[in-house]
């Protein structure tokens, strides 16, 4: 009985190690193809790794680069967005996304963004969700420590200093808790999508009989608000809304 268990354990370890080395090999091959400017092969290999279920920002970033090189700007934007969804502090992905946006027909950024908002967004994006998780936990530990200290050590003493410190940390904790919730929501939201077809016409209702509202082009980032049959009500960054055919876009999902 023991022997069988040991063997099965050994087998599991071996296969997992083999799997890792296999992925590593494919990854190296993909990079080599990219270096040789064979972007299509490189893309196929990176996609193979992606299909194994690995969720990794660097991988998405590399796939985005491949798509950009074979002139599929829409898909490149989709993958850069995916990379940023996994790691919002992925600087290379952000830079490439901004660069890829300059190749789209439609201007993407909302123009009159104020300073405070852009600063907040920058700060928000520069911290990854896991870092936030760790910071929140650390602040929580500090608060608990302070409370314990007050219970044990300061039981019969002046408590001004520890209470003051605890208050500060509780404020910090609240702030980080809110950021954590926002981050978590952002990570799990599935209403963002990228337009992949060359162009799509937005109508005022879920049919071509309605009035044309706008035309958008490949690479446009949009927010899905409702889906009805084959049609989706979308909202653009600049506030425009309309119904487009659902096949034209792909959601930014992990």
């Amino acid at each position: 009985m023991k022997k069988i268990m040991l063997l099965s354990l050994l087998w599991t370890i071996c296969t997992s190690i083999f799997a890792v080395s296999q992925t590593g090999l494919t990854f190296r091959e993909a990079i080599e193809s990219y270096n040789n400017k064979d972007y299509q092969t490189s893309l196929t290999k990176f996609s193979m790794i992606e299909n194994e279920g690995i969720i990794n920002a660097d991988l998405y970033y590399n796939i985005g680069n491949c798509y950009f090189r074979i002139n599929e700007v829409g898909r490149a934007i989709l993958y850069f967005k995916k990379a940023l969804k996994v790691r919002s502090d992925h600087k290379a992905a952000r830079r490439n996304l901004e660069y890829a946006f300059t190749f789209t027909k439609d201007k993407q950024e909302s123009e009159n963004e104020n300073v405070i908002r852009s600063f907040w967004l920058k700060a928000f994006d520069s911290i990854s969700i896991n870092l936030i998780a760790i910071i929140t936990l650390l602040i929580f530990i500090i608060i608990i420590m302070l409370i314990c200290l007050m219970i044990i050590h300061y039981r019969n003493r002046e408590k001004t200093v520890p209470i003051f410190l605890t208050t500060i940390f509780i404020f910090l904790f609240t702030a980080f808790l809110i950021i954590s919730i926002l981050k978590w929501q952002e990570f799990h939201k599935t209403d963002e999508a990228v337009l992949l077809s060359t162009s799509a016409i937005g109508y005022s209702g879920p049919s071509e009989d309605f009035t044309r509202v706008f035309t958008i082009h490949e690479g446009m980032v949009l927010t899905i608000e409702r889906i009805e049959g084959n049609w989706s009500l979308i909202k653009l960054e600049n506030g425009l809304g309309g119904w487009i055919i659902s096949d034209t876009y792909v959601k930014i999902e992990l």
């Binding site: 990854f27 990794n56 920002a57 660097d58 970033y61 590399n62 790691r87 490439n96």
Partner: peptide
Amino acid sequence: IGFIITDSLLVSKKVYF
């Protein structure tokens, strides 16, 4: 665009939350 990342550990992302 920037160059691809060649030294990634390819670790699947886990969200601590």
